[in-house]
Amino acid sequence: MSGLLALIARDVRIAWASGGIVNALAFFLLVTILFPFAVGPDTALLARIGGGVIWAAALLAALMPVERLIGPDAESGVLDQLAVRGISMAAAAAAKIVAHWLGFGPPLMIAAVLAAGLLGLPPQTLGAVELGLLIGTPGLAALAVATSALVTGLRGAGAVAGLVMLPLAVPLLIFGAGSIDGGAQAVKLLGAVSLVLIAGAPFVAGAAMRAGME
């Protein structure tokens, strides 16, 4: 257990030090800023589509760090050393999911406040978006780690990662954006999708990391 905490702490520190967190947030805000330019400065329209814009931007921002989540550790022998110490790859993947969420979820929720201001979202919409992000971003983090493990070692891993991850993230997007005015039922469905991803991703990622060693 203390070993997994050490692993989580290491990954969070690397994410901060490499600037990956700031990059993803800057990208998120840029995407949300692009929409008003594209659809025009119509306040009522922006307030109506703003929640969905934030969700789509969050999904694209989640794609940014995917290449760096597993690949560097596989190349530098870190995964080998973990396996030699008897740490299962599924446990290592679970630690990576927690670490990735810590560096991605909360900062994104703070950035979403800024984005809501830029899009002129009403306060109750912002509240629904934040609740949705709180429930949905752990699932997004789990999906990112699993995707990263699957594409590690491929040429052009970044491009393939988008093709693998975005279709699988569609349910999160549908129920996330739907939860803004869909009420409690949509929030429950979002929670269910997120839970499925969190429960399955460590095993998918662990099997992929294990296969990558051979």
Partner: peptide
């Protein structure tokens, strides 16, 4: 319990 020294240093 074994220790491995391989080609990659695996140090941050």
């Amino acid at each position: 319990h074994r220790a491995l020294m391989a080609e990659a240093a695996a140090l941050d």
